[in-house]
Design a protein around this nucleic acid. Structure first.
Lengths: 208, 208
DNA sequence: TCAGGATGGGCGATTATTCACATTGGTCCG
DNA sequence: CGGACCAATGTGAATAATCGCCCATCCTGA
């Protein structure tokens, strides 16, 4: 939240403040349950003023989505820029966990889209998930024997991705059960160590 | 969906048909994005008729939730009725995976509630998750060494639960990536074998 | 002076909810 | 057996609130 404008101006432009507010609200309530009145209230303006910056509600949503997608696309591109080794998978996983922890809104937006299967989902699939399932993404080296001939590897990719994203979308509900604010620094460390442990267990597992 | 009335009548009552329709719609769109007109249309009546069976929209939602919670509460109660061994954890996990696969609506409803953090979440926590985190739920036997002194065990419980539920809420989005209808029999087997493999890797993992 | 941005007012559509009324099926009574 | 009652259920019309969106107007800073 509170993404800053890139220019060296000190104050973010109105359009950016609208994007910030809309991002939070779309992520929390979903597209149709978010009213432009709510967005305007949060920015501190009246709702007709929004139309000075965005054509309509749908365009505002698209702009929010665009900003989030570019923000999150870097790590995966980086991973694919070289050979996919165990170490680099670890590093990539840690990066996206930290990224979703720092800004949970993309995961939440994605979850809303997946649930209501709206028209936005197609683009999300192509830009976020498709690259992960390219044949390119096979893990090199013989170190991963667990899913070798089972056809389960794409399913494992999906599972680990779900694990990262559902932490963001579900953890708030577990908050008091765990006795820890899920978005605290301490919780981040715990979730990182859990996920890395799982990944290590997968990598080092030698058949039954 | 299409939960049948328990009585030996052949035709489900109108109230049940309303519950069926509302369950699907609430699960898909969430509470506020679901209109009573949509529900009525799906049942084949006019929206004012709904008020002959439920006091208002909120009461309808509560009734849907109640029916789902009782439907899903059996397996966990069963698990807790005896010593928690590895084998019984496997069996429990398989049972709830099959259950969510057969009716994805509880997971979807839960995800909506978690995202918008509405007033419904408290009850859900208490009735579904709290039991899993009771001290009772420690796994007996020395076979699980992975999380022994790390304090990660509740986090692992959350992680596996997220894994099961996010399959239901996210898999439709992966559908074409996996090349398989996520709710087909074949996909169920794949997801079962993946989750059991992960659990086995966790159980059998012996330190770093 | 002028353009970008904010505003109040208002329009048409949708929503949850209410209410008076029609229809129905079954039960009781003569 | 027939008709009178009744409770349950469905319906159209209407209401108040909210929503996305448009427009004429106004303010302000360069």
């Amino acid at each position: 939240m509170t993404n800053q404008a890139v220019s060296k101006d000190q104050r973010p432009t109105t359009a950016d403040r609208i994007l910030d507010a809309a991002e939070d609200l779309f992520a929390e309530k979903g597209y149709s349950a978010t009213s432009l009145g709510d967005v305007a209230d949060r920015v501190g303006i009246r709702s007709p003023s929004l139309y000075n910056h965005f054509k309509n509600k749908e365009a505002l949503y698209q702009a929010v989505l665009e900003r989030l997608l570019t923000e999150f696309s870097a790590p995966l591109a980086e991973l694919e820029s070289g050979p996919v080794t165990n170490d680099r998978v670890f590093y990539w996983l840690e990066t996206i966990v930290r990224q979703h922890h720092a800004n949970p809104n993309l995961a939440r937006l994605l979850q809303h889209a997946a649930l209501s299967g709206g028209p936005h989902t197609g683009e999300l699939i192509d830009r976020l998930f498709r690259p992960m399932f390219e044949p390119r993404a096979e893990i090199e080296g013989a170190s991963i024997s667990l899913f070798e001939n089972t056809g389960l590897q794409p399913w494992a990719v999906m599972a680990f991705n779900n694990l990262v994203m559902s932490y963001v979308t579900m953890a708030p509900m577990y908050g008091e059960l765990l006795g820890l604010d899920p978005f605290s620094e301490e919780a981040l460390e715990k979730q990182l160590s859990l996920i890395k442990t799982l990944l290590r267990a997968v990598f080092e597992y030698k058949g039954a």
